[in-house]
Amino acid sequence: MRFDYEDSTPLYLQVANQIEESILTEAFKENEQIPSTTEISKTFNMNPATVLKGMNLLVDKQLIEKKRGRGMFVTAGAREKVQAERKINFFQEKIQPVIREAQQLNVSKSELLLLIERGYQRGEN
């Protein structure tokens, strides 16, 4: 995990985002324990309340769960939930603006699909 103390994104959101990213990349697997609030706060010199606030966001999203006396664990299906949420965000933040721009430029759907296919081919090289 890496945190940017100069970033305008609040640290608790960075904590949540970093753990979520670790779930997506399977650095933290389903049913696996994640580092404790204390471990993260000591390792990164952060207020434990800040770390806990970030973790609680993930508890609310049902990506991690508290097991009394044992710690925090990644829930079953957490990776799929992260992927689903990110696909929705990807569509809203990236694809919809491309479609709007294409429509303004009178790029047809088939032309746009050809451009996307060309981009995929170039990306594979």
Rank of each mutant, 00 (worst) to 15 (best):
L24S: 14
L114K: 15
I19P: 04
G77L: 06
R86T: 02
V74K: 00
K67P: 02
S36T: 08
E6N: 09
P10T: 11
K81P: 09
T25F: 03
E39R: 05
K87F: 15
Q62P: 00
L58H: 06
K87Y: 15
V82Q: 07
N31M: 05
I23A: 11
K81W: 07
S108A: 10
L52G: 01
G71I: 00
M72N: 09
V74Q: 01
L114M: 10
T50N: 00
E117K: 15
I40K: 04
S22G: 15
Q92A: 10
F73G: 06
Q103R: 15
K66C: 02
L57E: 12
N45R: 11
S36G: 06
N106F: 05
V74R: 00
R68Q: 15
R100A: 08
E85N: 13
Q92H: 08
T38I: 08
V82K: 03
L114G: 14
F90A: 13
I95W: 11
D7Q: 05
T50Y: 02
S108Y: 04
M46G: 06
K109W: 05
Q18E: 15
M55V: 04
Q92V: 01
L11W: 01
R100C: 00
E6Q: 04
P10F: 06
I99Q: 08
Q14I: 13
L114H: 13
D60C: 01
N56E: 09
N45G: 11
Q14V: 13
L112P: 15
L11E: 03
N17C: 06
V15W: 01
Q33D: 00
A16E: 05
L13H: 06
T38L: 03
N45S: 13
I19F: 08
E117T: 14
K42E: 15
L105C: 08
K94C: 03
I19Q: 06
D7A: 14
